[in-house]
Structures are given as structure tokens and as C-alpha cells.
């Protein structure tokens, strides 16, 4: 069936069964392949997108449930080739990236945190990251980079 979605501010019409995972529609129909699907079971966080500003695992979200909501993917953080968002820039500056598969989900998870809570504590940041699997980096630089943006030193925790 035909479903109307709002993705990254644009109205998109897709043809999919309503139970199709949103992640598959984003990746296979709209070619927004920044959203990853590393486990497809909701345990890794790589498919995290925003639904009306809240983080959601797009692999477990039926596309029918996303109709009428604002879907935001990693591609929206610095649209086109515009400047990196502060979070993206911090990850780049910290040399945090390795294989890169987990970062789209991590960045969307942190973006959701900041949308919900503009001044999170260090513990909030760690909690937001704790549902995201990264197999390469051992997390330390990701945490440091996230804290540098989300919890500026002058504000403290």
C-alpha cells in the first residue's frame, strides 16, 4: 500500500506493507542508507532515527506507525554538504571514528537526548549512549566527544 511519510522535512510517498520495518523503507526505497541495520532486532542502536524528536529503533518500527510523524535520519544532521553539526565535528576532532557503522545511530541518539534535555548531565549522556553497540572503538572517545558538546566543562554536571 501507499504510505505518506515526512522524512527530513520532506513529504515522501512510499509503497510498502505497513508492517515493513521503517529501516528497510528508508534504506531500500528512499536510499537513505546512513541508517544502519546491524542486528535488525533492536539491540544494537545502529538504526536509531528520530520520530517527532524521540529516538526510536527504526528496525522495530513498522513503517505504518511512522506515518504522520516527523522522521529524521542521520542525513538531516548536516543536510547536503553543509557544515557538520557540533556533535559530528566533535567526533571528527576526537578521531573517534573507526569502521563507522555505529555512528549514525549514536549521533541520532545523542541528538534526541539534546532535544529532550538541552542541558544533560554526564550521567544522562552515558545513559543515552549505553544502548548503542560499537565493536571498534571501546567507547572512550565517543563519550569524551559527546560530553564536550553536551556537557560543556564550564557548566559542569
Amino acid at each position: 500500500m501507499t504510505i505518506e511519510l515526512t522524512v527530513n522535512g520532506e513529504t515522501r510517498t512510499v509503497t510498502a506493507a505497513p508492517l515493513t520495518p521503517l529501516a528497510e523503507v528508508l534504506r531500500e526505497e528512499l536510499y537513505l542508507t546512513g541508517t544502519k541495520q546491524a542486528c535488525g532486532e533492536g539491540f544494537c542502536g545502529s538504526c536509531t532515527v528520530l520520530l517527532d524528536d524521540a529516538a526510536a529503533p527504526s528496525c522495530l518500527t513498522p513503517v505504518g506507525m511512522a506515518a504522520g510523524k516527523a522522521v529524521r535520519t542521520i542525513e538531516s544532521l548536516a543536510p547536503g554538504m553543509s557544515e557538520l553539526s557540533p556533535l559530528q565535528q566533535a567526533m571528527k576532532d576526537a578521531d573517534a571514528v573507526q569502521c563507522g557503522m555505529c555512528f549514525p545511530g549514536i549521533l541520532m541518539g545523542l541528538t534526541a537526548l539534546l532535544a529532550r534535555q538541552p542541558e544533560p548531565t554526564e550521567d544522562d549522556v552515558r545513559t543515552a549512549l549505553s544502548g548503542h553497540l560499537c565493536r571498534c572503538t571501546g567507547y572512550a572517545r565517543i563519550v569524551d566527544a559527546a560530553l564536550s558538546v553536551c556537557v560543556p566543562a564550564e557548566r559542569g554536571v
Binding site: 537513505l32 546512513g34 542525513e75 557538520l84 559530528q88 571528527k92 571514528v97 563507522g100 555512528f103 549514525p104
Partner: peptide, 11 residues
């Protein structure tokens, strides 16, 4: 820095 970091961070 890594030359591939930016595209990886942009998805």
C-alpha cells in the same frame, strides 16, 4: 585525522 571520518559521520 582520518579522511573518511566526515562521510562516515554524515551517513
Amino acid at each position: 585525522p582520518r579522511r573518511d571520518a566526515e562521510d562516515k559521520l554524515r551517513g
